[in-house]
């Protein structure tokens, strides 16, 4: 079900808890599905001894993908016209993630109704791990 423009207004926000206690297994799963086998995401020995991190960390694109689930569940399947993010902080195994979309504008162009959103994803400490924007076609 797509969103209806009549139910949206500027400043309206929608928050979803997406991940509790992120597992290393999910990083392995994402590496396999995406083809990004950079060892600092899945290889503890490499991540700590070669890259110098405390442990492995999530692919930015995994965090964008997880945040994208919040968006597509909200705006409807196949409705996004734009989605862009900045990765502001790394996401580590054990993290919880919560994502929010806030309506920043509604407009019509070429007989399509579009909604603009600000996106933010935070971890269990309230630190911002991802910020971004999206645009979707609404009913």
């Amino acid at each position: 079900m797509a969103l209806s423009a009549s139910k949206l207004n500027r400043g309206l926000s929608h928050t979803v808890d997406l991940v509790h206690d992120l597992k290393r297994t999910q990083l392995v799963q994402y590496a396999g599905a995406s083809g990004d086998f950079n060892p600092f995401h899945t290889d503890e020995i490499y991540a700590t001894q070669v890259s110098g991190y405390q442990t492995v960390f999530a692919h930015g694109m995994l965090v964008m993908g997880i945040t994208g689930k919040m968006l597509t569940d909200y705006v409807g399947d196949g409705r996004l016209t734009k989605y862009g993010v900045r990765f502001t902080r790394q996401v580590w195994p054990g993290d919880d993630l919560k994502a929010t979309a806030t309506v920043t504008g509604l407009f019509e162009t070429n007989e399509r109704k579009l909604a603009d959103f600000d996106i933010v994803t935070i971890n269990q400490k309230g630190e911002i791990v991802l910020t971004g924007y999206a645009q979707a076609e609404v009913d």
Binding site: S51, H59, V85, F87
Partner: peptide, 13 residues
């Protein structure tokens, strides 16, 4: 040693 990290990603569908 620092390695290339992903800073931003934008899609226009």
């Amino acid at each position: 040693k620092p390695e290339l990290l992903h800073a931003e990603q934008h899609f226009e569908y």
